[in-house]
Simulated scan of single mutants.
Amino acid sequence: VLKLVRNLYGQKQAGRVWNQYLVKRLTEKVGFKQSKVDECVFYRGRVMYVLYTDDSLLAGPTKEEVDAVVRDIKAAKLDITEEGDIKDFLGVNIKRDEEQGTVTFTQPHLVDKILAATGLFHENAKTKETPAASSRILHRHSNSEAFDESFNFRSVIGMLNYLEKGSRSDIAYATHQCARFVDSPKREHGSAVRWLARYLKGTRDKGMIYKPDKTKGLEVYVDADFAGNWNKDEAVEDRDTARSRHGYVIKYNDCPILWRSALQGEIALSSTESEYTGLSYALRDAIPLMNLLKEMLEHGFQMEHRTPKVWCKVFEDNSGALEMAKVHKYRPRTKHLNVKLHHFRSYVESKEITLHAIASEDQQADYLTKPVNEDILVRLRKRVMGW
């Protein structure tokens, strides 16, 4: 039996040991203060350091301040490689347009890998105008033929997931629907992945376009599709057909910073309950972001919003869910929601979170909950992604 005296690559605790070492160096030798909200965020004066495993970003108001931090990091015997102005991070291409005031995020190389994996990289491959067929819902298709293994289904789903999280909220619903059946894909699931790849082929160079609107703060758009996957023929064998799906987009300065499309873990008993569940889950992500923005204010970072206090607007198109969120009273039909979903009510009472009704046609999260036709997709994609 041998005793290790230092960290060894490949151990299950190696990543944790490395992180502890790095944090200690940054805080004790370089002078950073670790965020209390997010352990991967650090502050030193007007400079912010963001860590992702062993990749990182430094941001500051002047080049001189950033260069001074880099020198101190090197002096602390941390091996750091300077890449200059950010143009690519974690496989996401980042392009600034000073004249238009925009920042564009794209992942064309990952799209090419998906097309190559699905056999659609050639010039003659046809494209699609939507990520999925709007006229039908993808189910388990238990009685259909097995997928023909013409491509590595699991690998392609992994690439689609990374693409969706990085810059393509427009494929979130279609990607998650296909990913549900990765354990036993059928012919229909393979066809759905190819449909999605054809859509990506036609939009290869597209992504997320940020054009900040300084009049807008933190905003959340939440929507839910009550039991939209219901299929009476498969309900006995697949209880997931009874689950509702929610989706939400969290924006700051009108720029999407987080989005999600997911089946709800619990089976909702009404459309109001499914909408309220989506609202609760969305605010689980929004509240930590609110706290991070508050912390940045405390550290002297200027928020691009006319109101210095951090607050959050939530847009919901279901009147029942709005009533439950605003009027905090005991309801026999919803008492089972008490422990799990009412966590955000204190923020509503203090008015740090305000809830607003919104017309269904203006609900920007709509395309995260169901397959939509081309007209709706184009309208919402322009509102959320900028193209």
Score class of each variant (00 low, 15 high):
Lys382Ala: 11
Ile287Ser: 01
Arg6Gln: 02
Gln100Asn: 14
Glu361Gly: 06
Asn229His: 12
Val111Gln: 09
Ile353Glu: 05
Tyr49Ile: 03
Glu98Gln: 13
Ser319Val: 14
Lys340Tyr: 07
Gly386Gln: 07
Gly15Thr: 00
Glu237Asp: 13
Leu120Cys: 13
His342Thr: 12
Gly91Ile: 10
Glu188Cys: 05
Arg71Ile: 14
Val384Ala: 06
Val47Glu: 10
Val222Glu: 00
Ile287Phe: 01
Ser142Arg: 12
Lys201Pro: 06
Val220Ala: 08
Leu292Arg: 00
Gln364Ser: 10
Val23Phe: 06
Ala235Ser: 15
Thr118Cys: 12
Phe121Gln: 14
Arg239Thr: 11
Gln264Cys: 04
Val70Thr: 09
His328Thr: 06
Glu145Gln: 11
Thr277Lys: 08
Thr27Lys: 00
Val30His: 05
Ser270Met: 04
Val327Glu: 13
Asp213Tyr: 04
Gly265Leu: 05
Asn318Lys: 07
Pro332Cys: 09
Arg71Gly: 06
Ile94Val: 15
Arg379Ala: 13
Phe344Met: 00
Tyr52Glu: 02
Ala14Gln: 02
Thr53Arg: 07
Thr130Ser: 10
Asp55Arg: 05
Tyr221Leu: 08
Lys12Asn: 06
Tyr199Glu: 01
His299Leu: 01
Arg136Ser: 15
Arg239Ala: 13
Gly265Glu: 13
Arg284Phe: 04
Lys95Glu: 07
Glu349Met: 10
Pro371Asn: 08
Glu295Phe: 02
Leu263Glu: 06
Val50Ser: 12
Arg154Tyr: 07
Glu219Ile: 00
Pro108Thr: 03
Met296Cys: 10
Gly386Lys: 12
Lys370Glu: 04
Lys128Trp: 12
Asp375Lys: 13
Leu4Glu: 00
His342Pro: 02
Lys3Ser: 07
Asp225Lys: 10
Leu292Met: 09
Lys87Gly: 15
Asp205Cys: 10
Tyr330Glu: 14
Gln34Thr: 01
Val92Thr: 15
Ile209Pro: 02
Ala116Phe: 12
Ser360Leu: 07
Asp183Pro: 00
Lys214Asn: 03
